[in-house]
Each structure stands twice: as structure tokens, then as C-alpha cells.
């Protein structure tokens, strides 16, 4: 497993070609493999996420930029749409029931709301204590969130874009091989000014990244 790949893959397509919703390009950044990332997406702007090399889990939390005590709530989102999968039309709701972002396009078909983020601590339970010092999404969330004044208590169940977590009839649930592919995109429209906190998942012990974490690309357009 390479952990020394180049920090970025130079985008070969212009951002306006990549964006799923046309508009003025206001942000175009590559999130290196295993890295954290964050940005405020203004109300009405659209964030396109590109799974550059395929099957790369993108762990994602959302906060109302005006008051970060209001944040993405998996249960509010799941209950409101009566479905555990996210795809086009899904509204990402806050702990106060308000719409933070809407999935306005999705080339994959479904994304996970149940699995949460990997952490050093949960890795020790899932794979053994030898994994305790491997990099993990919670480490990214804590480091990236600190830049905005967020701390541990601000971390809750997150969205896992591109991650495939089926639930069997008996309730068995697990992270299985992904259904994404190189270049597949999704787009999120901000309904309010939204702080988007991302961990480009560094997990190497399960198939959520195809056992090979890779970069993803973030493009924000203003329609």
C-alpha cells in the first residue's frame, strides 16, 4: 500500500467542465489522499465532488456557518427521507431539522449515512490494536475542524460519499466493495451558508477506498 504517492494529481480537465451545475467557478481544489479539507459553501452555490480515481470514501460533516451548533444530523436526514441511502434529491438536514444542503446530481446511485468515520480507536476494535496508530478520519476531522473552532463534541455521525454499506435482511451491515468508478461525481447545493468538513478517508483495512486511498477534487460553482 503506497502512502507516499504524490500529494496531488494535477487536474487535466477544466473546472467548468467538471462542475455538474454550470456557473462561475469560485473554488477548484484537489484534496490529497488521506488529507482533511474544509470550506464554506455560500447559500446557492454548488459543490461538485469528483471521485478522481474511483471508490474513494469521502467522509463529510456539515455545519451552519452562522452557528456551528447547528450541524448535519444523520438521524434527522434519514427519518425525513425514510431511507438510509443518499442520492439525487436527498436533503441533508441539521439537528434542528433544517435543510443544509441538497444532493442535486449523483453519478453513483447511493451513498452511506450509517458507517460514520473511521477512528484510531474504532480501528483497534475492528482490526486489532496494531492499527491504533494508523491515520484515520477522526484525526482529519479534529485537525481540520480546529481551524474553525470546532472540537471533539462537534463530531457526529457523518456522510460517507462513495461508500457502499448495505444492510442485510437480518440487520447485518458492513462496508463492502464500492460501486463508484474513476471520475464519478456528485453535486451538493448549499441551502444556507454551510461549512463543509471533509476527511479524504485514509482507511487501508477495508474496501471503502479500494485499499488504496486516492485524491478527490472539489469544485464550487455559482450558478
Amino acid at each position: 500500500m503506497s502512502t507516499t504517492s504524490p500529494a496531488t494529481t494535477a487536474p487535466t480537465r477544466r473546472p467548468a467542465e467538471v462542475a455538474l451545475v454550470a456557473g462561475e467557478v469560485v473554488l477548484d481544489e484537489v484534496v490529497p489522499a488521506r488529507a482533511g479539507w474544509s470550506a464554506v459553501v455560500a447559500a446557492g452555490d454548488v459543490l461538485t465532488i469528483v471521485d478522481t480515481e474511483g471508490n474513494q470514501a469521502v467522509d463529510c460533516l456539515l455545519y451552519a456557518a452562522s452557528d456551528t451548533a447547528e450541524r448535519y444530523s444523520a438521524p434527522d436526514t434519514i427519518a425525513a427521507q425514510r431511507n438510509v441511502f443518499l442520492t439525487t434529491g436527498s436533503v441533508l438536514r441539521s439537528n434542528r431539522g433544517r435543510a443544509l444542503m441538497t444532493v442535486v446530481a449523483d453519478e453513483v446511485g447511493r451513498h452511506d449515512t450509517l458507517g460514520g468515520a473511521c477512528s484510531r480507536e474504532s480501528n483497534s476494535l475492528r482490526y486489532g490494536f496494531h492499527t491504533q496508530h494508523q491515520h484515520a478520519c477522526v484525526e482529519n476531522f479534529l485537525a481540520e475542524g480546529a481551524r474553525w473552532g470546532l472540537g471533539k463534541r462537534d463530531l457526529v455521525s457523518n456522510v460517507n460519499w462513495y461508500m457502499n454499506v448495505p444492510v442485510d435482511p437480518d440487520g447485518s451491515l458492513g462496508i463492502v466493495d464500492g460501486i463508484s468508478a474513476p471520475g464519478l461525481r456528485l453535486a451538493l447545493r448549499a441551502e444556507v451558508d454551510t461549512l463543509v468538513l471533509v476527511s479524504n478517508c485514509p482507511q487501508v483495512n477495508n474496501p471503502c477506498n479500494g485499499f488504496d486511498p486516492t485524491p478527490v477534487r472539489m469544485v464550487v460553482t455559482r450558478p
Partner: peptide
């Protein structure tokens, strides 16, 4: 309580006898 870890680590979405409710610190 971390409900995501509680279902993911135990490989089971439905609570029942024997299920361990996990904290976010792997305990």
C-alpha cells in the same frame, strides 16, 4: 455514545441482547 460505531464495529444495525453500545473512544 457513538451509534455509527455501535452498528459498524458490531456488524449489526439492529440492537438486541448482547449488543454492545460503543463510545467514540473504542470502549
Amino acid at each position: 455514545l457513538n451509534v455509527a460505531d455501535t452498528v459498524k464495529v458490531l456488524w449489526q444495525a439492529y440492537l438486541g441482547a448482547g449488543h454492545v453500545l460503543l463510545s467514540d473512544q473504542g470502549r
